[in-house]
Design a binder for these strands. Structure first.
Lengths: 244, 244
DNA sequence: CGACAAATTGAGCCGGATCAAACTGAGTGG
DNA sequence: CCACTCAGTTTGATCCGGCTCAATTTGTCG
């Protein structure tokens, strides 16, 4: 008896799967791929034949910008499906790379398409997952476009903490978050130096502490207010402790 | 004999529809809604029961930012499906408003879901449309995050011109583009004053002219180079004149 | 101990924000 | 036909948040 396919628990986190859905997923091949930290997974424009489900680790998607800079446009945490878009666009629209060492379930496009045709509810939920990613991306436009440095960072930490909380990898605003200040600068569009100073500002205000790959939010309400964070765009069931 | 449903020509622009697909679309109710300029269509958080296909006009999606500012996160032109995401997310994630007077085909969510279940290829193409919108949104993160004022504007004009070209509303970089400088400032995150000065800079360099609701790109290669524009992220068939 | 990645600090500068005002053109009503 | 209004554009002056360049410190690992 094999362990269930990783997509099973992904599905169970959202709905109560039917027997048919269980069976259809069980029919998928269950390749798991390991990726060391800092390794590229996909390159912009590359033709892709498979998608991934993150089991462990953190990845990011980035696009080249002016000079040799790269703007990070998304982070992926366990339960996310990086590059699922290539399923219908054929090629990857960004560079995707591991930040920490990762374990990924490989989902072949052909199998995925067959699954979607056979199980329309799964298709709708995968579609939905891409829509949530798009919603996050629009929020990032606001973040990089209109918010000050401290606000942008505050917002980013609120988002990541909330997403990690939703999958049980954060509790009460504390989580492992092995991002360097360079990652943060590439995600916000700020200079490395200014990220450093803005982080000091956030610490000095007693809003959070960040270091050694660990984030602890000490004043959730204050941080969310500063960053203008409204969790709705993540389309997650809102956990109790965050209410009001 | 009724005219064909507007979604028919949307589909025909991408694939050769089957008889079954024609029939399934013909079964949709064909309500068309008119919307005067500057009228809101959807508000953030509003529960939505229908999606739209733009037949005429330009709309934009925006999200509230610091103070009473609103960051524009997307423009919609004919052939686009604003707020299609609400089909699977239930509520609208942004404010959507007409910029010019618009005509929209109304697509009820229930009918749309039935259509997707019956015609998986149409479902995949609608999914694809949302993925392209997401890809554009990620490019906007780069635009607002890393590009200078002139570069961000140059990139925006390249994008809009390319999209309008693809639906036959632009030729050789010239198109009607009834955006005010205020719209441009809200889309790029720049101040109105600075947009004005950056536009003068673009005109002075002989790259484009913009005024009276009309955009003319005089030096496509120069403008694209300045803005770092690579049309790939739009996932359109690339027109000949743009090559090399 | 040396090497290297990451974090931190300091100084000077600039792109773009802000504030304030004037200008243009298209209505619109007397 | 003119005065008025109002949205949109333009200009000028000033200020500051964030960038750049350059160095130093800290922590980790071999």
């Amino acid at each position: 008896m094999r362990p269930p396919h990783p997509l099973t628990s992904w599905l169970e986190r959202i709905v109560e799967p039917t027997a048919g859905e269980y069976a259809a997923i069980a029919r998928l091949s269950a390749e798991v791929r390991s990726l060391p930290a800092d390794q590229p997974l996909r390159r912009l424009g590359e033709e892709a034949g498979s998608a991934f489900l993150v089991l462990e680790g953190i990845l990011c998607a980035s696009k080249p910008a002016e000079g040799d800079k790269h703007q990070i446009v998304a982070f992926f945490v366990p339960g996310d499906l990086p590059d699922l878009e290539a399923l219908h666009l054929g090629r990857s629209g960004q560079d995707i790379a591991a930040i920490t060492a990762c374990r990924l379930a490989v989902l072949g496009h052909a199998e995925l398409r067959a699954l979607c045709a056979a199980e329309p509810r799964i298709a709708a939920l995968l579609w939905r997952a891409t829509l949530v990613a798009a919603s996050v991306s629009r929020e990032w436009v606001v973040n990089t476009g209109h918010r000050s440095a401290v606000a942008a960072l505050a917002h980013l930490f609120c988002e990541l903490s909330t997403r990690l909380e939703a999958i049980g990898l954060a509790r009460g605003g504390a989580c492992d978050l092995p991002l360097t200040q360079t990652h943060l600068s590439r995600a916000t569009g700020l200079s490395l130096v200014h990220v450093n100073r803005s982080l000091q500002e956030l610490r000095r205000r007693g809003l959070l502490s960040l270091g050694n790959g660990r984030l602890a939010i000490h004043d959730w309400a204050g941080l969310a207010a500063l960053g203008g964070f409204e969790a709705g765009y993540l389309h997650l069931p809102r956990p109790r402790w965050m209410a009001a």
